[in-house]
């Protein structure tokens, strides 16, 4: 998941901020609980759970980023 997200983010440069939340840290567990995620890996875009568990195709992640950018 991490690699797929990094690749999907590359073309957007500094328009996208990438944060890794490891559940092997207290901060990561707190974030997971607060956001309401129950599976790993989970990808949240602007605080919304968007992809859960399976590695999404890079193009699907790019499309989700573009959609969110257009909404801003």
């Amino acid at each position: 998941m991490l690699e797929a997200v990094k690749r999907a983010c590359e073309p957007f440069g500094d328009k996208v901020q990438f944060i890794e939340r490891s559940i092997k840290t207290n901060e990561g567990i707190e974030f997971m609980t607060a956001i309401g995620a129950s599976n790993i890996p989970t990808l949240c875009i602007d605080g919304e759970i968007t992809f859960v568990s399976n590695i999404p195709p890079v193009n699907d992640i790019k499309a989700a980023i573009e959609k969110r950018l257009n909404e801003k």
Binding site: M1, L2, V5, C9, F12, D14, K15, V16, Q17, F18, I19, E20, R21, S22, I23, K24, G28, F31, M32, I35, A37, I40, P41, T42, L43, C44, I45, D46, G47, I65, R68, L69, K72
Partner: peptide
């Protein structure tokens, strides 16, 4: 998240 001009991607993982 909404107020940031950037799209923020949080990846929850076990690494």
């Amino acid at each position: 998240y909404g107020s940031s001009p950037k799209v923020i991607m949080d990846v929850i993982c076990s690494r």
